[in-house]
């Protein structure tokens, strides 16, 4: 009797776990397997022709200039955006770390950029960046400087996208670091003050070391998120001018949804996944060492 009851209990747990498990398997595990499989084929989705070609897709992509460019742009974007966001987030957390009237409202305003749709944000920045009638060039002209091709100049466009990302995601970095800061016990500061430490010393010797865990965490989350850059490129530059803002995600998108070459997009996806895996490994090791 007891045995059957236990069995019926475990059936119950299997039953309530199964829907989520199946859905996750279908939405993530299956596609990854499929991507790896297709990457060995010359597979045109429209005509449906599929022919095994071994590593040919990988060979041709790795030799392709556009892929190099995409990789390079992604790297530049990822490093500059995530590092600047974390630095600004730390700076803001230090500067705003005190109680003041209206702190609650200010915190709410600070998270606005990260909860508004990226498309809305891109639309607004598009009006800032417009060469002839944009706000930025108007300001430049009115102080006597020459206008900048924010989205049309090859050497500037990628950094214009970095700027939008900084506007959108610095609040996120600020939020996590600030949360870490407020969990540092006040006694530590009091003790340091009694020992005669200045505010610079306290920041460098107490606050920053204690925040290292949070800082690495934000840096990781921002690196992994900036690495998949797609939306802003789609909305602001479409990969141009002259491929100056092509990214890995955009490369996969073009192979898959413009040329419907699922073999090549698969190979590009696998290469991207390998890089993402390496990236996260570096951080995970760092975070675990922090724990030990």
């Amino acid at each position: 009797m007891k045995q059957t009851k236990r069995n019926s209990h475990s059936i119950f747990f299997y039953l309530i776990f199964l829907p989520a498990l199946l859905l996750v398997l279908f939405l993530t595990t299956y596609p990854i397997g499929n991507v790896v499989y297709n990457s060995f084929f010359d597979y045109d989705f429209i005509s449906g022709s599929r022919e095994y070609i071994g590593l040919e897709n990988y060979r041709s992509i790795i030799a392709e200039e556009l892929f190099h460019r995409s990789f390079q742009n992604t790297l530049i974007f990822t490093v500059s955006a995530s590092v600047l966001e974390v630095l600004l987030g730390v700076a803001l957390a230090f500067l705003l770390h005190r109680s003041f009237r209206g702190k609650r409202v200010a915190s709410l305003v600070i998270i606005f950029p990260m909860i508004i749709s990226t498309m809305v944000i891109s639309a607004v920045w598009q009006t800032f960046y417009h060469f002839e009638i944009g706000l930025f060039n108007h300001i430049l002209r009115s102080v006597g400087l020459s206008p900048v091709g924010w989205l049309t100049d090859r050497s500037v466009a990628l950094f214009s996208i970095v700027l939008v990302d900084i506007w959108q995601w610095t609040p996120f970095a600020y939020l996590i670091i600030q949360a870490g800061m407020s969990s540092i016990p006040a006694e530590l500061y009091e003790a340091a003050e009694i020992d005669g430490a200045g505010s610079g010393q306290i920041a460098a010797r107490i606050t920053l070391p204690l925040l290292m865990g949070q800082i690495v965490l934000v840096l990781m989350l921002r690196t992994l998120d900036t690495f998949r850059l797609f939306d802003k490129v789609y909305a602001l530059t479409g990969g141009g001018p002259a491929n100056a803002t092509q990214t890995l995600s955009f490369f996969i998108y073009r192979e898959g949804f413009t040329f419907f070459n699922f073999g090549r997009s698969g190979a590009a996806s696998v290469l991207t996944l390998v890089i993402v895996a390496l990236l996260s490994l570096v951080y995970v090791r760092r975070l675990f060492r922090e724990d030990a």
Partner: peptide, 17 residues
């Protein structure tokens, strides 16, 4: 882990499915 995957990687195979 799913959180760190670039979603475009999943989009192509899911599109055909």
């Amino acid at each position: 882990v799913v959180r760190i995957l670039p979603p475009i990687v999943l989009a192509v195979p899911l599109f055909s499915a």
